[in-house]
Design a protein around this nucleic acid. Sequence first.
DNA 1: CGAGGTGTTGAAATATCTCAAGCGCCGTGG
DNA 2: CCACGGCGCTTGAGATATTTCAACACCTCG
Lengths: 244, 244
Amino acid sequence: MDRVTNVFTRKLVGLASLNEHEIALLDAEATPIRLIAAHRDLIREGDKPGPVFVVLDGWACRYKMLPDGSRQIVAFMMPGDFCDIHAGILDEMDHAIGTLTACQIVAIPRERMDRLIVATPALTHAFWRAQLVDEGVLRAWIVSIGRRDSLQRVAHLMLELYVRLRSIGLANDERCEMPLTQAVLADSLGLTPVHLNRVLKVLRERRAMTLTGGTLQLLDPRELVRIAGFDNNYLHRRVPDEVG
Amino acid sequence: MDRVTNVFTRKLVGLASLNEHEIALLDAEATPIRLIAAHRDLIREGDKPGPVFVVLDGWACRYKMLPDGSRQIVAFMMPGDFCDIHAGILDEMDHAIGTLTACQIVAIPRERMDRLIVATPALTHAFWRAQLVDEGVLRAWIVSIGRRDSLQRVAHLMLELYVRLRSIGLANDERCEMPLTQAVLADSLGLTPVHLNRVLKVLRERRAMTLTGGTLQLLDPRELVRIAGFDNNYLHRRVPDEVG
DNA sequence: CGAGGTGTTGAAATATCTCAAGCGCCGTGG
DNA sequence: CCACGGCGCTTGAGATATTTCAACACCTCG
């Protein structure tokens, strides 16, 4: 396991039992690394299938623009996440993927990906499973936007991101980097930036959490979990500490 | 193609090119048929992996209950849809699946499903693809709830369901069966039943569509598409007629 | 016949949005 | 070195969309 060199591989190893050979295959794909600036599109809506992108560092997101110019972010991608085994299978992208910060990205050509998948059942299984987890996130997202008020919704998203960051070793104590502007968060939560700002203020005043200068600080995880109605088995991970 | 006997098989045939043998394999699974009453849970949140269910007739849905007793429906399942290749792969269900009307269901034991999948790559491909389509639906759902107002949202859902029904031959002219109560629709749209009712009234008054007695009637598809901001390539299908 | 689920409507309450303004920070160009 | 402009954050006040509460009509079913 200490042979694992990159987040991408590490994530998949966490999802399925892979042997040395399979791990080596994955690691071999994690090159060359490309540096992409913030606010660039990796894939645009309507694009034909291209390579599979893996985020090694930085944040990206899936999003969709509406005719009236508003944007809905549908998923956040952090180190280890990959975009679209999909595109190869469906005809055309129904949404775009763009960077939120500067990113390190690996682009795996479609054919290599396909070869990788058909050749090794264990990897098929790992990818499939990763996709199922993503689907679970999408469902949770719908539940949040559909039935939680803004306070619960914000608290829930913060916990989700915290838990995910933690599972890839990017969160310690009750703190993590979260380089997302309020506008970005608002676009993911179906809120207005103005309103999101007010909600953050409330959470701050209740001493539940703060989000400033690009870092999230959980002041009172227990309280935050309570506010959010956060399911502590979410994604089969949990927010640790005194909670639970 | 005329050898295809059930909606389930028919749907998969529409998603990938399957040969006679593979079609026969699928058809062989579509038995025995179980009759399930309305408002029964097929799978409950927290359940361990069980069989894969396929809806042959009737409507079901995925949903999640919140602590305060409210419900968010996350997906509608109509004839041909199947639930959870998932459950077998993840540890535990994070949502429930229940019938909305009386249903005809086939339960395929997990092991047979697994054997089917590993044995025939074309089927793996078909299932994978079906799952990707579902994921696209989930993303569109998020966009709707997050960024569209109630009028657009309702119009969009009606079009989505219409298009899906049409693709399995359950909609003709501009009309289809839609045995969903207003409460159910509200729970899927993140609205109140009362408000949904008012929205339906507006759509009726604008002579865009009516929904009464369990049947949806598109009076003015073009107008409805306009109201919804409906992407006519949605799911790579389209609402036909004068539209487009 | 009564009970409960479903659809309909009204009026008041509330959550969220919109518009508008000001502040601080930071990078750029003079 | 300073001034400027732009972006992100913050706050206020009024507008609007949606919810809540309440009542009633209709229908089916027992």
